[in-house]
Computed example of a mutant assay.
Amino acid sequence: MPLTAAKVLAAKPNGGRTVYTIGKESPVLDAIRLMAEKGVGALVVLADQRIAGIVSERDYARKVELLGRTAGETRVEEIMTTAVRYVEPEQTVDECMALMTEHRMRHLPVLDGGTLSGLISIGDLVKSQIADQQFTISQLEHYIQGTPPTLGRL
């Protein structure tokens, strides 16, 4: 059974249901503070309760700091990515990684029936693949040794 975006979310704290958001008219400084406080690298940007974009630490570094702008006077909508790519829960980790690699993204919203159900990072995907590979190796070792296999998988 392939690893899916839903399984990656399920392995995250709180089942990946916690997604930090910010309004598009908020100052970038508020976005940076929220990311630092929550220990995340990106926020989903909302306008009228709909996804308007995504803003990341990289956006801040490249579109505020490097251009000599101020985070307190620049609005999130001025630096956010508006062409938000997303995946659905049943899409595989391989599909997610291919999309992120092709578009040089580090964060990917997961939409279930058009509703935001989580946000996965490249780190989440790598972690899930490592865990899956470790499980497979463990199963193979048990098979070779003739011992009962370990139950459970991501």
Rank of each mutant, 00 (worst) to 15 (best):
Thr92Ser: 10
Leu29Met: 12
Gln134Asp: 14
Gly23Phe: 09
Glu65Pro: 12
Ala42Lys: 03
Ser121Met: 00
Gln139Lys: 06
Asp59Trp: 03
Cys96Ala: 15
Lys7Asp: 14
Glu102Lys: 15
Leu108Cys: 02
Pro13Met: 04
Thr150Ser: 03
Met35Arg: 07
Gln133Phe: 11
Val8Asp: 01
Ser117Val: 15
Met97His: 06
Asn14Thr: 12
Ala31Ile: 15
Gly146Arg: 07
Met97Ile: 11
His142Gln: 10
Glu78Ala: 14
His107Arg: 10
Leu99Val: 03
Ala31Gln: 05
Arg33Asp: 10
Gly39Trp: 03
Gln129Leu: 13
Gly23Cys: 11
Arg153Asn: 09
Val45Tyr: 14
Arg69Ser: 06
Gly15Phe: 07
Leu29Val: 13
Val93Pro: 08
Ile54Leu: 15
Ile137Thr: 08
Ser26Arg: 14
Val93Phe: 00
Met105His: 09
Glu57Ala: 08
Tyr143Ile: 14
Val55Thr: 09
Thr21Tyr: 00
Arg104Ile: 06
Asp48Val: 09
Val93His: 03
Leu99Ala: 06
Gln139Ile: 15
Thr115His: 15
His107Gly: 03
Val44Ser: 01
Ser56Gln: 04
Tyr20Phe: 10
Lys127Asp: 15
Gln49Tyr: 12
Asp59Pro: 00
Val45Leu: 08
Pro148Gln: 11
Asp132Val: 12
Met97Phe: 04
Thr21Pro: 01
Met80Tyr: 07
Leu154Ser: 12
Thr92His: 03
Leu119Gly: 08
Val126Tyr: 09
Asp94Glu: 15
Lys7Asn: 11
Ala6Asn: 13
Glu90Phe: 11
Pro149Ile: 05
Arg106Glu: 08
Gly72His: 02
Thr92Leu: 00
Glu57Tyr: 06
Lys12Ile: 06
Val76Arg: 04
Gln133Asp: 10
Arg104Asn: 15
Thr82Phe: 08
Ala6Tyr: 01
Arg58Gln: 07
Ala98Ile: 14
Glu88Pro: 07
Arg50Asp: 13
Ala31Gly: 09
Asn14Gly: 12
Gly53Ser: 08
Arg153His: 08
Ala11Gly: 14
Arg104Met: 14
His107Pro: 12
Tyr86His: 05
Ile122Ala: 11
Ala42Leu: 04
Ile22Phe: 13
Gly68Leu: 07
Ser138Lys: 15
Glu88Val: 06
Ile51Tyr: 04
Thr150Lys: 04
Gly53Ala: 13
Arg153Glu: 08
Glu95Gly: 09
Leu9Gln: 00
Thr81Asn: 06
Leu116Met: 04
Ala131His: 08
Ile130Asn: 11
His142Arg: 14
Met100Trp: 04
Ile54Cys: 12
Asp59Gln: 07
Gln133Trp: 12
Ala11Trp: 06
Thr147Arg: 11
